[in-house]
Structures are given as C-alpha cells and as structure tokens.
Amino acid sequence: MPATDAPTPAADADATVAQVGERGALARIIPRLPRGDDTLVGPGDDAAVVRADGSFVVTTDTMLEGPDFRAAWSTWADLGAKAAATNLADVAAMGARPTALVVALAVPGSTPVAELEAFADALAAAVASLAPGCGVVGGDLTTSERTVIAVTAFGSLDGRSPVLRSGAQVGDRVVVAGDLGSAGEGVALLFAEAIVDGVESADEAQRLRIEHPRAVMAQLAPLPPVAMGPVLADAGATAMLDVSDALALDASRIASASGVRLALRAAPLRSFPAPLDRVLHGGEDHALLATLPASAALPDGVLEIGVVEAGDGVTLDGEPLEARGWDPFA
C-alpha cells in the first residue's frame, strides 16, 4: 500500500473505488489500520520494515468470492475480521506471536469505499482483540470482477523453537484450544436456509445471524484463540496446527507427519455445543489442536480430547475415523 502525496477527492460516503481511484481509496483506508509494535517502516515506501530479532514465521491465505465466501452472506466487516483471524491463527499454531500483516485486495470498481473502510475497521478490531501489538504494514489494492483478499502474516518466535506437525510422541495427550464444530454448523445453516430460488439471500442470512448467532458468526467472523499458541508452546507442545479443515482431517495430518496414531475420545468432544459430526468434520473452526507430554501441566482454556498411540491414522473411541473435512477442490 504505497502512500501518495497527490491530492485526493473529499471523502464521500457513496463514492466507489472507481470514482476516487486507488490513491483516494488508500488515503481513506490506511489511517484506519494499526501500525504495530514491531513496525519500523509502515505503509508509504516500496516495502515495510519490521523488527525481527531471531527466527520468524510467515504464512499466507487467500479468500476468493465464491469458493471461500458469498457476498450475499458476508458483510465487508465480516470479511475484514475473518481475513485477520485465519492468518493470525496460522501464526499462533507455530507457537509464534503475530507481529505484522500485509493485506492485498482486488475488488470491483463499483465497490463503495465506505465498504473498504468497514473492512479495514473490522480487520483492525480483530487484530487488536486477537493479537495486540500486531500491525498492518502494507499491501496492495487493485481491481477485479470478483473480490479477492490475500493476507500474508508474520510472527516472532521470541526465542522459542517452532512447533511443527511432526513432533507428536507416543504417550502425549491430544488437546484443543478454542471452539469446534460451530463454524461447520453455521455454513450448513446458510446453505440450507439462505438460498432462495437458487440465489443466495442476504435477508435470510441476516435472519440466521439473529436466530443462530453462535454458529453463523463462527463461520462468518471467527475468533480463534491466537494467544494460546505461545502458551501451548511454552507448556511443551510437541505438535500443533490450526484446525481450519476439520478436526478429523487435521488430526490425520499430525498423525501422518509424526508417524503416530491420534486416539480421540467422543466424550470430551460432546462438550462442544455443535453436533458431534460437525465437531469432527465441519471445518473452518480455527481452533488449535496440539499434543502435550503427559507430564506437562494443562494450561487454562485447553481441553484434553485424546492420546497419542503407536500406529497410524486417527481413531474415535477405538474405531477408525475418516479423514474428512473441507477441501476447496472437492
């Protein structure tokens, strides 16, 4: 997001991106974004400069209108919150502290600049809530027939070793921080009740927000337990990942990478408000799934859901569990 000293049109609540241009839009968006504690040079030059004392982690995620979100169901504020949350969760899953985001947007020229301001405000609020001190240090704005949101996130390990998917050991406890199943329940509701005569309905989506706020908002604007990433790392986590594609599928990734079996128990999983099938296969929860040594103290806010065994794959109460979840190509 390069800055500009060129004059820009006066702010107009009804103005579109095409009317004010890239410079005018950025002049209204950039001041709304957090600078960040580790930012040395923010938006305004060809690249940002972020303090990095030691090893850091980098991740990226793209949200494309259609496969990843429906414009009739998500507000621009929802999109800003979700774009921040999904990337911050990936940083946390490595045991790192989020330090900076780079945000690229491609939007139709007819998009009101006020909607991009709502996006920026919600993104800033999500960062402040989930990862205080993290900044938005740059990005890009261009035009497209469909909205595309791409975020790259950076995080500091603060002297820790990264927590990989490949470190689970036989005898470890399997634990989770955050919610499971609500996001899958929410998207199922939207597809079942917010499509009218084959067309996605904003009115029906709004009704569902009111009638089923837990499930629908978990899908549209998730709140992952970002702060728990470093906490779990400090507690001795041997493996960890962000549950973005469903517990069953993501647990199988830890099992495969570590060469072990994750033996899950249904009883603790039934403590979540969503139905068990959604808890196991729903996807887009952005909880943190980790393994901890049996001797490690269990941090507050963490639920034990199983144990690591010799073998392969994932089981539920001793029976093989299908590695099924979200797949954008399915």
Rank of each mutant, 00 (worst) to 15 (best):
A81K: 00
L105C: 11
G171T: 04
S129Q: 12
P132Q: 11
E145N: 12
A100F: 03
F154T: 02
A106G: 07
G109F: 04
V175A: 04
A150Q: 10
V136L: 03
G138A: 14
A77E: 11
T152Y: 12
V151P: 00
A93M: 08
G135V: 15
T152A: 12
P112L: 09
A120G: 05
S156R: 13
A128Q: 07
A153P: 11
A81G: 09
M94C: 13
D121Y: 12
S74L: 13
P162C: 07
A93V: 05
T99G: 02
S161T: 13
E145A: 15
P132M: 08
S166V: 06
A96M: 13
A81E: 07
V103K: 03
V127D: 04
M94W: 11
V136T: 14
T75N: 10
G80K: 07
R160W: 13
V174E: 05
P108Q: 09
V102P: 00
T111K: 03
R97Y: 10
D78M: 06
E115F: 15
A114R: 13
A106Y: 06
A85W: 01
T86P: 08
A89Q: 03
E145D: 11
R160G: 15
R160T: 12
A131R: 01
V170G: 01
V174Q: 02
A131Y: 02
L101G: 01
N87Y: 03
V148L: 05
V103P: 05
I149H: 06
V176T: 02
G155V: 01
A120N: 10
A106K: 08
A96N: 13
L164T: 15
A83P: 01
G139S: 11
V137Q: 03
A104N: 14
G95W: 05
T142L: 06
V91N: 02
G135A: 13
G95F: 07
A85L: 09
G159N: 14
D158K: 11
V176I: 00
S166M: 05
V176L: 03
A100V: 05
V107I: 12
V136P: 12
D172Y: 04
P98D: 09
A93P: 12
T86E: 10
T152I: 06
E145P: 13
V175C: 05
A83I: 00
V137M: 02
A96E: 10
I149Q: 14
P162N: 03
G109T: 06
C134D: 02
Q169C: 13
G80E: 04
A84D: 01
S129V: 04
P132V: 11
S110G: 15
M94I: 11
A77F: 03
V91K: 01
R173T: 10
A150D: 11
K82R: 14
A100I: 05
D121F: 14
S74K: 07
V113F: 08
V170C: 01
V127K: 04
G95E: 07
T142N: 10
A114N: 14
G155P: 04
A77Q: 05
L88V: 02
A93E: 10
A150Y: 13
C134T: 06
V175Y: 06
D121T: 14
N87S: 07
D78H: 05
G139L: 08
R165D: 03
S129L: 09
A168Q: 00
S166L: 10
L157C: 02
E117N: 14
D140A: 15
A124G: 08
A168H: 00
